[in-house]
């Protein structure tokens, strides 16, 4: 059986001519059904591009993106996307933002069926009290919860998350992580989480794959998270497995980070000048 999602030698560039930047190069990735994979990387390393390729918003220049063994030809409601910047429609309230998506997926449903489905999912992220509010009246965390709800209410086979929690404060982040895990564990969907937070990755995922910084980003060696679910955040801190894993991932990231900054170091030729110091004045004040 084919893997649920497979990327074969995928490369992607933006721009033309001299401005052409190869963002991703030779990405190979296999995600099995029901797996929760986290991709950890520095900002600007091409993580969002990776999500766009898998969701079908963009297409690779070279290589193939396969979904259930078939090439991805465009976005599909089977692959729900949670965007980094929420992307809620500001003229629709929470109910309609989610409802519009539900209506699209379940075209034969009646109005009341759509309504109760929306309410059920909004309730899951405890936003029932704000269901008739416009996005502008919601806080960042609440907006991201709506965005999560919108993606999950479609019951997609795959959830693609593009740094969904990176703009939130630590507390909201924790609750939302649990909410996402809750919904994910209920029907064991395939999930791909992109994050810049190693702890978040270990807490949520089965496998962690670092993305080496772009341009020409490639995937690093994978780290398997062998910690049993359900995981407890407070206990995790004392878990030896967790500590070891965390340290090795961080070590790896720091190492490739150092490589990158070493590569970027450019020698600047300084002009042969010496500053004129007002030495007399300085001496004067000293005395």
């Amino acid at each position: 059986m084919a893997a649920h999602i497979e990327l074969r030698n995928v490369s992607k560039s933006y721009g033309e001519g001299n401005d052409r930047v190869e963002v991703l190069r030779n990405i190979n990735l296999i995600i099995e059904e029901g797996e929760f994979v986290a991709i950890v990387g520095f900002s600007g390393s091409g993580k969002t591009t990776l999500i766009k390729l898998i969701s079908g918003l963009e297409f690779p220049d070279e290589g193939e993106v396969l979904y259930k063994g078939k090439p991805v030809t465009g976005p599909s409601l089977d692959r729900g996307v949670i965007f980094q910047n929420y992307s809620l429609l500001p003229w629709l309230n929470v109910r309609n933002n989610v409802g519009m998506a539900v209506k699209e997926k379940f075209k034969k449903w009646t109005k009341s069926e759509v309504g109760s489905h929306v309410e059920k999912y909004v309730d899951m992220v405890s936003l029932s009290h704000a269901i008739n509010k416009l996005p502008k009246a919601l806080s960042g965390g609440m907006r991201q919860r709506v965005s999560v709800t919108r993606a999950l209410s479609l019951s997609p086979d795959v959830i693609l998350m593009d740094e969904p929690l990176s703009a939130l404060d630590a507390l909201t982040r924790g609750t939302l992580q649990d909410e996402i895990l809750n919904i994910w564990s209920k029907d064991k969907k395939t999930a791909l989480l992109i994050t810049n937070d190693v702890d978040e990755g270990i807490y949520m995922a089965d496998r962690i794959i670092p993305l080496r910084p772009g341009p020409k980003a490639t995937l690093g060696p994978e780290f398997v998270v062998n910690i049993e679910r359900p995981r407890d955040k407070t206990e995790l801190n004392n878990n030896d497995n967790f500590k070891k894993l965390r340290n090795s991932i961080l070590d790896y990231l720091i190492k490739i980070g150092a490589e990158r900054s070493a590569k970027l170091t450019k020698e600047y030729k300084l002009p042969d000048l010496k500053p004129i110091l007002k030495t007399k004045l300085l001496q004067g004040t000293r005395a």
Binding site: L57, P75, G80, V81, L89
Partner: peptide
């Protein structure tokens, strides 16, 4: 572009 992406993802 965000709204366009929403439209694309929802297959409108």
């Amino acid at each position: 572009q965000d709204y366009i992406n929403v439209a694309k993802v929802l297959n409108l």
